[in-house]
């Protein structure tokens, strides 16, 4: 777009320059027409040169040049302004497009990054979940093993305590009976028991007496 404007400006300048050249040549033809056949070529040449110089002096005097300069300046400024405006518009549009493009690219990139991030997060969650499940399974297995071991230990301890209790219980009861009965029996009340026991072992005692 900018190149097109530049070409347009250069073409305009070239047209102005060609118009200027055409005006100069037209003036030269008008001055050289009535005296051409009478004077020599050198004179004609000199005359034309003088006329051209005079006309050029008249035509391109200071005011005219100043006006041309002003016109050119204005024209150039106008063109520059227009070009600047177009350039600004183009730049704004480009910036807008670039912003849109950047937004799209950034959005796409962000979407892609977010998608990858979400995917990575999902994978991480799955890994964490799998790890947690595995850990939970291991903990559950260890808990079961611990519970089993504790149950066995408790059973063994219970059996040991029961055995100790049973072993000592008989002694305790016996001790209690011994302490409780103490001197409660006199020999007369024990005599039937003693005689009964002797009667039961009478044969052994008799044989022992005979030895």
């Amino acid at each position: 777009m900018t190149g097109l404007w530049l070409i347009f400006i250069l073409a305009s300048l070239a047209a102005v320059f060609l118009a200027f050249i055409w005006v100069i040549m037209s003036l030269q033809r008008l001055q050289a027409g009535p005296k051409a056949g009478k004077k020599s070529a050198a004179d004609l040449d000199k005359a034309y040169t003088d006329i051209a110089e005079e006309d050029a002096t008249h035509l391109f005097n200071k005011e005219f040049r100043e006006e041309l300069r002003n016109r050119g300046r204005l024209r150039f400024e106008k063109i520059i302004d227009e070009n600047a405006m177009f350039l600004k518009q183009d730049l704004d549009m480009t910036i807008s497009q670039l912003n849109d493009y950047m937004k799209q690219q950034i959005s796409a990139k962000l979407d892609q990054e977010f998608a990858e991030y979400a995917k990575a997060m999902q994978q991480a969650q799955e890994l964490a979940l799998a790890s947690l499940q595995r850990t939970a399974q291991e903990v559950e297995a260890q808990r079961l093993q611990l519970a089993d071991a504790l149950q066995k230990d408790v059973t063994a301890r219970e059996a040991a305590l029961l055995k100790v209790y049973e072993d000592n219980m008989a002694k305790i009861v016996e001790h209690y009976v011994l302490q409780a009965l103490g001197d409660q029996f006199d020999l007369k009340s024990q005599l039937p028991y003693i005689i009964k026991q002797v009667e039961a072992n009478k044969q052994n005692i008799i044989e022992d007496m005979r030895l």
Binding site: V177, G182, Y193, I194, Q197, V198, N204, I205, D208
Partner: peptide, 19 residues
């Protein structure tokens, strides 16, 4: 012995005690 008797013959011992 608590009760009963502890009997010793020439070659044997018979514990008929309550203990």
């Amino acid at each position: 012995l608590v009760g009963g008797a502890y009997i010793r013959t020439p070659n044997h011992v018979h514990d008929f005690s309550l203990r």
